[in-house]
Design a protein around this nucleic acid. Structure first.
Length: 270
DNA sequence: AGGTCGACCTGGCAGC
DNA sequence: TGCTGCCAGGTCGACC
């Protein structure tokens, strides 16, 4: 999926395009992405004004004028695309016609995405368990030191655990650890305080930089304008196995951790 | 409780 | 060309 930087980019782009608009009509082309009865979903949205849009973790939260919420989780291949035209793409699974006359299309190749409305975000288990935002104050060095204590899992797995910290997925976990010079296999509780400080700084730096570049497009990610992100050229390790490390020229390695690919430099990540 | 693994889906691509 | 098997950025429930 789009990870934190990609979802943040979409949220910022959509702010100008959809906030203040009313939902005039909804077409559901594949009900599998709607995580409630379709009738209920369309009834909850039709005629409502979209008051605000925010990102929490990798989820988009759109507040409606009745204080209910429209929540979109793009998962692996979801896209929210602003368009002047009705559905053209067979990947479009839900279309919203807005009062501006424009459309918001929800596209999804793998159908893992989730669209739903709720009166209270606490009803969604994802939000109940979600850890702190890595770019906010709660994600601090002392907090991290405390949280790593006793955690035997590899640090890569912990970074990707959204109940630990929100929004970091497979691409940025590898990139953050490369920036930190920390080996992804290291048990989390074995990091010393200096390494934890480095990890903290690297997490913020990599995510902030990726937002500045409007995210990373490996395959499916597109922003709200249907454009690819600009961070690909800045990716140091993800998807670059058998290429030379940008720091020390060692050949980068790909390993499997919990069934997911991890990319790192075996020389300068210790 | 802490940690791991498959299931959920479709499509692109490498290899034969 | 056409098949098979593998891989893909996330999340969750089942299991040990």
């Amino acid at each position: 999926m789009p990870e934190l930087p990609e979802v943040e980019t979409i949220a910022r782009d959509l702010r100008d395009k959809i906030i203040g608009q009313k939902v005039k009509n909804i077409d559901v082309y594949d009900a599998r992405v709607v995580r409630q009865p379709v009738e209920e979903f369309t009834r909850a949205l039709k005629g409502r004004r979209l008051n605000s849009i925010a990102r929490r973790g990798k989820a988009l939260v759109i507040e409606l004028d009745n204080r209910h919420y429209f929540v979109v989780q793009l998962m692996m291949t979801g896209q929210l695309i602003d368009s002047p035209r009705p559905r053209q793409d067979k990947l479009t699974k839900v279309s919203f016609r807005l009062s501006s006359g424009r459309y918001l299309h929800y596209n999804d190749q793998r159908l893992f995405g989730r669209l739903q409305t709720v009166d209270d975000l606490k009803r969604i288990p994802y939000f109940q368990k979600l850890g702190p935002e890595p770019l906010k104050g709660q994600f601090s060095v002392p907090w991290l030191v405390e949280k790593l204590r006793g955690k035997k899992v590899p640090i890569k797995a912990l970074l990707m655990d959204h109940t630990f910290v929100a929004g970091i997925g497979n691409i940025y976990a590898s990139e953050i650890l490369f920036q930190s010079r920390i080996n992804p296999k290291r048990p989390a509780h074995r990091l010393n305080e200096e390494e934890i400080e480095t990890l903290h700084a690297a997490t913020r730096k990599v995510l902030a930089e990726a937002i500045r570049w409007r995210g990373t497009s490996m395959n499916n990610y597109r922003d709200a304008n249907g454009e690819k992100g600009g961070f690909m050229g800045r990716i140091k390790v993800y998807g670059r196995e058998n290429q030379g490390c940008s720091r020390c020229k060692t050949v980068l390695t790909k390993i499997l951790q919990r069934g997911r690919s991890t990319f790192y430099c075996p020389t300068c990540q210790r």
